[in-house]
């Protein structure tokens, strides 16, 4: 997977959290995600499939405390339980990130799926078969969130 695929997703992630949730998040160093290392902390993920002249997935994963904090900020209401509002927010965030990232990847004619949500402590996340899953941590006040991207290289017609 080429590095040039990643930057539009990072840019979109920063923009979405600033403008939709109202928080500044700071990207850290990218890493190749290895689920067996099990050193990451997250409880809910929004997942979107990508097709077009490439194919893959984009995932945004949150620890519970961060998801609740962001849902409270986005709605202006105190949200303390993992309810439909949190699920809605996580789905909308990954949807906007994937849609906005298309701007930097116009030549690949990407098509995005509807978001899916997975909940559970450190649930398994896997990328496209044979393609590394690149993780990018983002620091926020309440903890780190993770952006995961796994995209095949250009599929020629």
């Amino acid at each position: 997977m080429q590095v040039k695929y990643i930057q539009p997703f990072i840019n979109a992630t920063i923009k979405v959290f600033k403008e939709f949730v109202g928080v500044d998040i700071v990207p850290g160093s990218p890493f190749i995600f290895n689920y067996n290392e099990n050193k990451y902390n997250y409880d809910i993920s929004g997942i979107i499939g990508i097709a077009g002249h490439t194919m893959g997935i984009v995932v945004v994963s949150f620890p519970k405390i961060v998801a609740l904090d962001f849902a409270s900020k986005a709605t202006g209401e105190k949200i303390t339980i993992f309810d439909d509002t949190v699920i809605d927010l996580v789905g909308e965030i990954v949807n906007i990130i994937a849609g906005n990232a298309k701007q930097g990847l116009e030549q690949y004619k990407l098509v995005i799926s509807l978001p899916s949500i997975v909940k559970g402590v450190n649930h398994q996340i896997t990328g496209v078969s044979g393609v590394p899953l690149i993780g990018i941590p983002f620091k926020s006040e309440k903890g780190s969130i993770y952006l995961f991207v796994s995209l095949k290289d250009l599929i020629t017609a």
């Binding site: 990130i97 994937a98 849609g99 298309k102 701007q103 116009e106 004619k109 995005i112």
Partner: peptide
């Protein structure tokens, strides 16, 4: 009003 930001969209 959509996240679809590509010009072709």
């Amino acid at each position: 009003i959509t996240s679809e930001a590509a010009k072709y969209n």
